[in-house]
Each structure stands twice: as C-alpha cells, then as structure tokens.
Amino acid sequence: MVVRDGATLYTIEGVAAALLMIVTATIVFQAISIYTPGDTHIDDMLLEQLGADALAVMDLPQGQGELTLLEEVVQDWSPDAFDAAFSPLLRERSFAAEDPIQYSAEISYRAGDEVASVTFSDPPGYVATGRDPAVRVTRWVQIHPGHSVPIPHTGRSQVVLLEVILWRG
C-alpha cells in the first residue's frame, strides 16, 4: 500500500503546486486594473492643458488696450481666422510629426434665464465615431454691441462662453 502511494506522490504535488500558482496569478491579474497608455488620464490631462493654453494665449491683448484675438474672431464671427490661429498651436510638435488634433467649438450665451448655444466651428468632413476620448475646455469671451455673433442682440456688452471639444482623430 505504502509503496504504491509513493509512486504517484510527485505527480500529485506537482498538480497541486501548478493549480495553486495558476489560480493565484489569474485572480491577481483580474483584480488589479491594468493601466494601458491607450486610455490614459495623462493624455487627457495633457490635451486639456494644451487646449486651455492655446485659448489663453489667444486671449492676450494684441496691443495695449486693444481687443484680444479671441474676442476679435468671436465678435466678427470668423471661424476661419480662429482655425488659422488655433490649429497650429495645437498641432505643432518638435519631437514628432504633427499631432492630429481635431476640435469643434460652440458658443453658449444667456437668453433671459435660459442658456442657448450656437455652433462656431466644426471640423470639416469628420464623422464622429463616438469612440475618440475627448476633452472639453472653455473660455469666457466678452462681446460688445455691434458684434456679428448670430445670437439675439441685447444692446449691452455681454459675456459668452466659448466651448471647445478636443480629440485626436
């Protein structure tokens, strides 16, 4: 009896050890959330930073007491001028090829006690997949009577919110 038992002992121990290791590894790997560069928060953070930076720089006055570039393009309602200034700031890179960042911009304004929005700039020919991780940055813009923004005129200076959605596409 004893001798027969001994003949399968190593096999049983080996199977036990194998099961133990594999079960532990499986449980452990399933338990921790794996951080992959694909859906990183870091990339979102850097993109948000970049967008906010670009808007902030465009919102610097062009001369002492003059309008900022951002106020000018919103006031004159010229998405092309906005794109000409905004896109290069987002895309230029020196350690790699141009960053393929896309954006869409809209303007929100107050009408009485309600908030309404108009589209300012949409990327041409882009079909939304709904999968690209996007970030949102905003900037306050002052507009004055006589502006060309397609919103109801109030006859006073007002503040609108420029909202830009950024993603890599």
Binding site: V2, D5, G6, L9, Y10, I12, E13, G14, A16, A17, A18, L20, M21, T24, A25
Partner: peptide, 15 residues
C-alpha cells in the same frame, strides 16, 4: 513518503 512536498512549497512561494 514526504519527498514531493517541496514542489507544492515552491508553488506556494511563487504565488
């Protein structure tokens, strides 16, 4: 015979 136990011990350590 307890000779085989070191294998399971090893598995335990690795886990």
């Amino acid at each position: 015979n307890e000779d085989g136990q070191w294998i399971v011990l090893m598995g335990f350590l690795i886990s």
